[in-house]
Design a protein around this nucleic acid. Structure first.
Lengths: 335, 335
DNA sequence: TTGTATGCGTTATCAT
DNA sequence: ATGATAACGCATACAA
């Protein structure tokens, strides 16, 4: 593991000074066509690559972004991966690398990556309503973007999917189809207890829209499949009108519960969901759904973050919301 | 983003030389109890953290491991995440960070991270039978571990789940239950075409065991649900004896195909699967299955890698295989 | 348009 | 047991 060629080697081979090589790379001063050619040729023949550590030490940029990931979370793994992949691709386009940090490290993790100058900025995923990291970031002279919106986002740069609108859209859809009440197959009590704000906001959207339409809402935490099942038996065909179903987490189990009772979405029940497009389409009956767009969110975050980094500024306060859209599929009757 | 305190600041506050501070951190020479105390106190009050770049430049270690991830792959996202999480946790225990690189970057990515001294070692996931990165790694004076085994693993350090045994175990199980033939609901033609070696090895395991038992095998690529469905109609109840089913990818679709025909696993058909434990357990009928143990594989890789790094050596040739185990659940009749 | 020289914050080799 | 001091490879202010 002997070190590779340095900018000094390149300089010698090109017959210029080391600083010229540096300037060729940064483009921070004009270079004559001839020297440019020779330096680039030398770099190519030596297969030169700048030493990241030296660069970080001399300049003040690491060309690295940390991304704080919630691994063992209630969130869907596919969504997380989509977000992260999109972000890594964006980072590479800006000649940056991505450092992976577990949320488990908590606030100490933030301190570590900033204190050790491991990165130029951080992206914190899966923010809770009262996230200690939010408070920490407010007093940090360091660009941090949050995916998810804490209860008090003042002074923070956040981006997220519009879960509140998502909830409303789904209720509106069911209402438009003539549902007399709404049954939500929601997150586990555990997820709710974790205080993830997106759940809070989604619920608020559902509640508001339902209230506006005068529809009663029933909530069923996911693992309590029994409560949902008995609700199916008791309520879906009640006299007071049809019950519309909103599925969020635990989609497979929910679909099975319906199937076990011979209920076909779109024929016997109207079912809408909050899930990925892939999930919506791979069900026995493709689901009318609002899908959270992890790649969209990721692109926005990357866009905002890199524009800031390139200007050497701190992340700007502001919540960036990716709009929710509903896609109609077979699980709801033709309007 | 002013720089934080340096070891020089710590030294001044503790009334010692800067080099002493460095030695306190590395533990590479003995320090008197008194100075140790004062230095540690100074570090604490200043909240000192060493500059990663400077450290990488002066020493020759970055304390970073790169992990080359296949994002948009056929592999299950949950498995990938489990592997990665486990690895990050292990890395932190060794005071290392993890750099995320997309497989998309291919061989150039390897060159980049080594050339720029971004990391001390790399983990390459999702290796194909004839992986160009394998060839590249052989000529690299740099520790690389592969998850997955290329056709020619000579000179490489690999680790993987024992897919071949997994295939055999599943066939043996069905054979033991009296199956007269085996139907494999396998990967898409696309996945197979991508040349992932784990598919090859799994298939080999199935084929060998079936041959030994004299059982005919039928293969059904996943998206061609129709072929599997008609095979169900035609064959599962044929006279020549029961057909055992092995499910690999496309588990939900496969389960639905059975359900649609009123076939209950364990009652009407014996079904075994290659999937995660979670998947096996969340089906309508819990599945007898061999589960690939991403966390086990991860721990082995981490163990081998860090022991090498700490000795400053290159990764040693050798394939490390995590044994396959079958767990019986309700989808197979009581033996 | 280019070269010289200094400093970034460590590690590690000499000394003592 | 501890202090000086010289790299490490690059960026950049200052000269020319």
């Amino acid at each position: 593991m002997g070190r590779g060629p340095t900018s000094k080697d390149v300089a010698r081979l090109a017959g210029v000074s080391q600083s010229t090589v540096s300037y060729v790379m940064s483009g921070k001063r004009s270079i004559s066509a001839e020297t440019l050619r020779r330096v680039e040729e030398a770099m190519a023949t030596l297969n030169y690559q700048p030493h990241a550590g030296a660069r970080a030490l001399a300049g003040s940029r690491t060309n690295t972004i940390a991304i704080v990931m919630p691994f063992a979370s209630a969130y869907d793994a596919g969504q997380l991966m989509a977000f992260v992949e999109e972000f890594v691709l964006a980072a590479r386009r800006h000649d940056c690398d991505v450092l992976l940090v577990t949320a488990e490290e908590g606030i100490e993790g933030l301190r570590r990556i900033t204190g050790r100058s491991l990165c130029d900025a951080a992206v914190v995923m899966q923010v809770t309503a009262h996230d200690e990291r939010a408070e920490a970031a407010r007093h940090l002279d360091f660009p941090v973007m949050f995916i998810g919106v804490p209860e008090d986002p003042s002074g923070l740069a956040c981006a997220d999917f519009d879960f509140e609108s998502a909830g409303s859209l789904l209720v509106e859809e069911l209402a438009g189809l003539g549902s007399a009440r709404v049954s939500v197959l929601g997150w586990s009590a555990e997820s709710v207890a974790r205080d993830y704000n997106y759940i809070v906001r989604f619920s608020r959207g559902v509640r508001n829209a339902a209230q506006a339409r005068g529809l009663p809402v029933e909530w069923h935490p996911t693992p309590a499949e029994g409560s949902f099942a008995s609700s199916i038996d008791a309520g879906l065909h009640a006299d007071g009108g049809r019950t519309g179903v909103i599925m969020t987490s635990g989609l497979p189990a929910g679909m099975r519960a319906l199937a076990a009772r011979g209920l076909v979405p779109g024929r016997d029940v109207d079912v809408v969901a909050l899930c990925t497009e892939a999930e919506a389409e791979e069900q026995s009956v493709p689901l009318t759904a609002v899908s959270t767009q992890p790649r969209d969110v990721s692109r926005r975050v990357a866009g905002r973050l890199f524009s800031l980094i390139e200007q050497g500024r701190r992340a700007e306060e502001g919540v960036d919301v990716v709009p929710a859209e509903l896609v109609r599929r077979a699980s709801t009757r033709a309007g």
